[in-house]
Nucleic acid binder design. Sequence first.
RNA 1: AGAGGCGGCCGGACAGCUGCGCGGCAAAAAGUAAGAUUUGACUGUGAGGAAAGUCCGGGCUUUAUGGAAACAAGACACCGGAUAACUUCCGGCCGGAGGAAUCCGAGGGAAAGCGCCACAGAAAAUUACCGCCGAAAAUUUUUUCGGUAAGGUUGAAAAGGCGAGGUAAAAGCUCACCGCUGGGGCAGAAAUGUCACAGGCAAGGCAAGCCCUGUCUAAAGCAAGACCAAGUUAGGGUAAGGUUUAUCCUUAGUGGAGCGUUUUCACUCCGGCCCAGGAGGUAGGUCGCAAGAGCGGUUUGGCAACAAUCCGCCAAGAUGAAUAGCUGUCGCGGAUAUCUUUGCUUGCAAAGCAAUAUCUGUCACAAAACCCGGCUUAUAGGUCGCCUUAAAUU
RNA 2: GGAGAGAUGGCAGAGUGGUCUAAUGCGGCAGACUCGAAAUCUGUUGUACGGUUUUCCGUACCUAGGGUUCAAAUCCCUAUCUCUCCG
Length: 120
Amino acid sequence: MSEKKTILKKRKDFLRVARGVHVVTTCVIVQAALNLSKKSNQWHVGYTATKKIGKAYVRNRSKRRLRAGVRQIFPQLALPNAEYVLISRHNTHYCPFALLLKDLKYALKKINEQLLGGKR
RNA sequence: AGAGGCGGCCGGACAGCUGCGCGGCAAAAAGUAAGAUUUGACUGUGAGGAAAGUCCGGGCUUUAUGGAAACAAGACACCGGAUAACUUCCGGCCGGAGGAAUCCGAGGGAAAGCGCCACAGAAAAUUACCGCCGAAAAUUUUUUCGGUAAGGUUGAAAAGGCGAGGUAAAAGCUCACCGCUGGGGCAGAAAUGUCACAGGCAAGGCAAGCCCUGUCUAAAGCAAGACCAAGUUAGGGUAAGGUUUAUCCUUAGUGGAGCGUUUUCACUCCGGCCCAGGAGGUAGGUCGCAAGAGCGGUUUGGCAACAAUCCGCCAAGAUGAAUAGCUGUCGCGGAUAUCUUUGCUUGCAAAGCAAUAUCUGUCACAAAACCCGGCUUAUAGGUCGCCUUAAAUU
RNA sequence: GGAGAGAUGGCAGAGUGGUCUAAUGCGGCAGACUCGAAAUCUGUUGUACGGUUUUCCGUACCUAGGGUUCAAAUCCCUAUCUCUCCG
């Protein structure tokens, strides 16, 4: 499966997900929402880095690291039919990668519970 | 040796796995206004010395028909050279810092003119308060007139400095030395240096105040711009001007228009025709966009910057923006442990350094966005070459 | 990516070479008025270092570092940060 098809790019999508639930950790903030309108059962991910965390290179690098983390974790843990947005924080571009993975796992588990709970 | 100065180079290395951008190759499905797109146990390639700040100079593009002169605005400024160009670079001069190597300097003009120089001080640029000296008057220590700028006070700065002569008191008034100015000789391509001569001191500072002299400069920027072009809009192009905004009117080579302003010279265009399969151009796409003032070397010329010549090489091209993650070995930095073993320092104890073992690491500054030449700023650590050597240490 | 503007006390904001923390307003503190509060009125109020150790005095600081000048918040250069505009 190509990675490209799973990426959110439109502003509209980001705004919709921002209305959903969110979880904050030291390295990353995760927002998520279920999307029932789309036919496919594939999960989607968007990446965000504000100007606050640094210059262009720092923002790009942060998003890149988040992408590397997503590749390892999401195939096992992500809910199908859900949309996630990962927001970089100011330590995302230099924190140890193991910590980043740990935070992602934790946030994903917690946010999935909230999503399923909210559904009922 | 140590200390100091100048310049060059490197900017962790190698291997493996997963993943990303671009190019090539192969395959796939769909068929679009156009460009596309997707897949790959295929393949090639992928950040810097500052890519940064955007402070200068160019190329390139658009606007503008080209040249000349004046004005306006701005920039620069010792001399010579280099360069596409520069406020850059190289060599030299002068001034300053240092013991030296060496480093630093926006370094034209204040006798073209205007302006400013607070406070203090008599006076801040044709000056005289206190003084000093002489004369006259009055008179018991004052006034008036004249000479003078040695001495005093202020200040950032006070009209050549110092000594001697001179005088009523003084003064370049005169003289020696130093400084200054002038024209001349010599050296040099020049800035400038130097030599003797003469003048006889005659006008302080600020031009990063206005300004003067000389030289140079059109403006904006790849979000420049060119092309294709869904939707949508309704006439458009080819001269100028006018209004009532109508494909209307007026003018037409003895006229009008042509982009900082004015003048001038040359040049070009202009009185009806063309197009509905046409025009404009939004979303979107393609190009601009990677062979260049290119990079690495050879030889020749030059003190050098640099130029010429020959040989070899092709080295990122994104646009919601590619280089990431992990593992191993070595390197580097940091921490801890052990003197059991080995080496070194010390007379010994004790301790330290190296070695060894273990653990650990945002591994300096920093990330291309049209491209080059500079400048400026940031930068852990390593390495090479040349030069100086006063003091301190060995 | 490109173009431009700005930075002054706790906050806003004058001051464009001259004696100087630097007008004014808001704020803070103290006092008056009030039973108490608000409003009003009056006074006061920056930081750091050094001397002194209550007071008081001196020096430095107008984003930072240099330069020009006798003298710089002001003129010139460099850097840092903030803001605005350009599809």
